[in-house]
Design a protein around this nucleic acid. Structure first.
Length: 461
DNA sequence: GTAGCCTTGACG
DNA sequence: CGTCAAGGCTAC
């Protein structure tokens, strides 16, 4: 407790600009950036500037060299997620735009994550629910997953700073790429203020008791796998069935009225996504919690979409891991990149980065099952009923994930933090993908009778 | 052209 | 009425 009192400064503003590593001055055009990159992005978009790279379009962009190659700087701005739409065509000053809620959500998420990580990292005595005494461990930083083992691009830009700033400075290898790029904020002056005080500590929330039905009790003595994880696995969708249904539907579409023309890659992707979505809705509906959920939750377009993207990512990472072919359902993202426009290409690149990260982390089925439920129980989506239930579920699942990691990984703390970051990147990516899909839908480019689109439209209407 | 500081104005 | 993310201004 006294430890937490030592954290003072505004957490967000201690982050570093994902484009150049300079000090962040606030949210600009979609994410936290520095003042200069904000200005640069604005000038470029407002004046419709076209730059040319004198090198190989891979110039390093940092505080010292950001002026050297505006082409690469702008590319990086787009890659990290700065939004063209946030630059106003009418140049109107002041006010707020549609990104306001997104900034708020992002802020809440960061606070929640930090509070959670602190709570789990420094909690001397854990609740019986969180970690059973059989595998209680030292919670101090073990070095865990070093930043230099992850490709720079594999980490969510805002999260990147997060990872780094959560490492004790002495644990950072001074010769790591990250260390030479950025200066890290000192670890010992943060403030921990969460908009979700319930999530600050992972313990058995009082609300949980109302709903839980003893479901979340500690695993039986001697058992390594938390009981909840086993439950998660039990309700995992049947992969083989999903694949055969998707293949069948692809064949059916192809042999139907569209026989004469070749389906585009994009339409195949939409169809596959659509089919997967049916499964996800079914998964959410039949999951162990369904009897306690209101319909609005399991049929929530936003969450299901997050899980859909996550599923594809997870599959891809599995694919990289063991080079196992998943029949027709597998899509080679690299093949699509070459055909895609800049927005989709950037999305795909970020997706590939996340896949890379998932595969480096070797995320297993159990962990991914937890991540799926964490997304389903996202307390930051406020339109849902049963907010208290959702928050307590989120706590429970986070606790379960941590417990599982503690029992399986020697780099438990780093791993836990990284998995939460993957979840956040997944949410970000999914929102971007959603915007993109909606945009293409408005241009009448998305196939009809698409559940995904119907959900998106319902959400936005 | 860059970047730090200033002004504006919707939103809570 | 304060906040803060837009655009604007201007010295460098």
């Amino acid at each position: 407790m006294t430890f937490l009192m030592e954290y003072r400064h505004n957490v967000d503003l201690e982050e570093l600009c994902p484009v150049c590593g300079d000090k962040v001055s606030g949210y600009h055009y979609g994410l936290l950036t520095c003042e200069s990159c904000k200005g640069f992005f604005k000038r470029t978009v407002q004046n419709n500037k076209k730059y040319i790279c004198a090198e190989k379009q891979e110039c390093r962009v940092d505080k010292a060299q950001r002026k050297r190659c505006p082409f690469c700087r702008f590319q990086k701005c787009l890659h990290v997620g700065m939004r063209l739409e946030a630059v106003r065509a009418d140049r109107m000053r002041g006010g707020r735009n549609k990104f306001g809620p997104m900034y708020k959500r992002d802020r809440a998420l960061k606070q929640q994550r930090k509070a959670l990580i602190h709570a789990s990292a420094f909690r001397k005595e854990s609740s019986p629910l969180l970690v059973s005494s059989t595998h209680q461990r030292d919670y101090t930083f073990s070095g865990g997953f070093q930043p230099d083992t992850i490709p720079q691009s594999a980490v969510l830009p805002t999260a990147q700073n997060d990872i780094i700033s959560h490492q004790h400075p002495s644990l950072l290898p001074s010769n790591s790429p990250g260390a030479t790029l950025y200066q890290y904020p000192s670890f010992s002056n943060w403030t921990v203020k969460s908009e979700h005080p319930n999530n600050c500590a992972i313990s058995s929330g009082s609300a949980a008791g109302i709903y839980s039905d003893n479901l979340f009790s500690s695993p039986p003595q001697g058992s390594r796998m938390p009981r909840l994880v086993m439950e998660f696995l039990r309700c995992d969708p049947d992969e083989i069935q999903l694949q055969s249904k998707t293949t069948a539907r692809l064949k059916q579409e192809h042999s139907g009225s569209n026989k004469h023309r070749n389906p585009s890659t994009f339409s195949i992707m939409c169809l596959m996504a659509d089919q997967t979505l049916f499964f996800i809705v079914e998964w959410a509906r039949t999951s162990i919690f369904f009897k306690q959920l209101k319909v609005s939750i399991w049929f929530n377009p936003h969450k299901n979409n997050h899980i859909l993207i996550g599923r594809i990512m997870y599959k891809q990472s599995q694919h990289i891991l063991d080079s196992h072919m998943y029949s027709l359902v597998q899509v080679e993202l690299s093949d699509i990149s070459s055909l895609a426009g800049p927005t989709l290409a950037s999305l795909i690149q970020r997706g590939k980065d996340l896949v890379e990260k998932l595969s480096v982390l070797k995320v297993d089925r159990q962990e991914f099952a937890c991540i799926k439920f964490l997304i389903l129980f996202n307390p930051d989506v406020k339109e849902l009923e049963d907010q208290g239930f959702i928050e307590s579920m989120q706590e429970q699942v986070e606790g379960t994930l941590l417990e599982y990691i503690l029992s399986t990984s020697s780099q438990h703390f780093g791993r836990f933090a990284h998995l939460l970051l993957c979840r956040s990147e997944l949410r970000t990516l999914s929102s971007l993908a959603e915007d993109y899909l909606y945009f293409r839908h408005l241009s009448a480019e998305v196939p009809c009778n698409n559940l995904l689109i119907e959900m998106l439209c319902a959400k936005r209407s």
